[in-house]
Amino acid sequence: MARNLGNVATAPFPVRPCGFHELIRDEAWGARDCVCGLGSRARRSQGVHPRARIAVILSGTFQARSSQGEMLVGPGAFLLGNAAAEYEYRHVDDGGDRSLVFDYGEALLEEVGRSLGVHVRGARSFGQVAVPASPGSVRAVALAHEALRYGGREALREAALLGAEVVLSAQNGGVHAVAEPSATQVRQVARMLRYIEVHSAGDCSLDALAALAGLSRFHFLRIFQKQTGQTPRQYVIATRLRVAATTLRTTRLPVTQVSLEAGFGDLSHFTTSFTQAFGTSPRAYRLRHMPRAAH
């Protein structure tokens, strides 16, 4: 039987009831999981955005309208909202929708804009209702999928920053004024790779690594990803998993201790990440790879 790809129930995301689910909230930015089960017979949704907002549409479709225009948005689109601006959403079919919604303080958007060479107009940051799905935004959408599925502040922050990059670059004609990373910046990334190798169990957050590199968070994220093909968080997780796998193969430490010493904050996150990467649980991996005692 063919799957109903438009139905939110089929999407591989955390199971949550319909509504807004706050994931992160602070002065600089916020993240919410929007689960909607409304259909064509539902009333139009109306309101006012409290802060600048970018919603990454992950499944489903609906019509969005604001003072910036009107658009039918679907998976891969970036729905935009300016601070204090009114919006109206209307469902034209059934099946619901799912989106990861980011709110931005002015300072964070301005930080991203400076790095891109794009002027951000304060409360009127966005000049269109949405940025359509495109090949150039696939990586940012995929990161939003990953952040929603597996959670974590660092994953959500990276998704928020890369989403802002897609939107601000699109408003600048799809281009930005940032040059290729300099030799100095490449060395800074190399230095951070060595730092992560030694300190992967410690604080390797985006804030910490960017500060050590002497760069803004967003600029560090961009040049790190360009040079390594991964975001800082993805690289740190891969390093921690590599350390954990080696420890499982060579010691008899309890799995919980292996998780903590590798830098994972909780056993559940470790088990999920490890199973996804190796195709088996940590305990099963150990049983398969531990050297057998000599007879």
Score class of each variant (00 low, 15 high):
3 R>K: 09
5 L>F: 08
7 N>E: 12
12 P>F: 08
13 F>D: 11
15 V>D: 04
17 P>A: 10
18 C>K: 05
19 G>Q: 02
19 G>C: 10
22 E>I: 12
23 L>S: 11
25 R>H: 14
27 E>C: 04
29 W>S: 08
34 C>Y: 12
35 V>Y: 01
38 L>R: 13
41 R>W: 05
41 R>D: 15
42 A>N: 06
52 A>D: 10
53 R>L: 10
54 I>R: 02
54 I>W: 01
57 I>C: 04
63 Q>R: 13
64 A>K: 05
65 R>K: 12
65 R>V: 15
66 S>I: 12
67 S>C: 04
68 Q>L: 05
75 P>Q: 12
75 P>D: 08
76 G>C: 04
79 L>T: 10
81 G>M: 03
83 A>M: 04
85 A>W: 02
91 H>R: 15
93 D>T: 15
95 G>C: 06
96 G>N: 05
103 D>R: 06
103 D>Y: 09
106 E>Q: 11
109 L>P: 03
109 L>H: 07
110 E>C: 05
110 E>L: 10
114 R>M: 10
118 V>A: 03
118 V>P: 01
118 V>C: 02
119 H>L: 11
120 V>N: 07
125 S>M: 04
128 Q>A: 15
128 Q>N: 08
135 P>S: 11
137 S>P: 00
138 V>G: 06
139 R>E: 12
142 A>L: 06
143 L>W: 02
144 A>G: 07
146 E>P: 00
152 G>C: 04
155 A>F: 02
155 A>P: 00
158 E>S: 07
159 A>C: 03
160 A>W: 03
163 G>C: 06
163 G>Q: 03
167 V>M: 01
167 V>N: 03
171 Q>P: 02
171 Q>R: 02
177 A>F: 06
179 A>D: 13
180 E>P: 00
181 P>N: 11
184 T>K: 02
192 M>I: 15
192 M>T: 14
198 V>Y: 00
198 V>H: 01
208 A>K: 07
208 A>D: 10
209 L>H: 08
211 A>C: 05
214 G>R: 08
214 G>N: 07
216 S>K: 03
217 R>K: 10
219 H>M: 04
219 H>S: 09
220 F>W: 06
222 R>F: 03
222 R>H: 10
225 Q>T: 15
229 G>L: 03
230 Q>K: 13
231 T>N: 01
233 R>N: 14
239 T>A: 04
241 L>Q: 05
241 L>W: 01
242 R>V: 12
243 V>T: 12
246 T>E: 08
247 T>E: 02
247 T>L: 00
252 R>H: 14
254 P>T: 15
255 V>T: 13
256 T>L: 00
263 G>W: 01
264 F>W: 03
266 D>S: 13
268 S>G: 08
271 T>F: 00
276 Q>E: 14
281 S>F: 04
282 P>H: 05
286 R>G: 09
286 R>V: 12
289 H>F: 10
292 R>M: 12
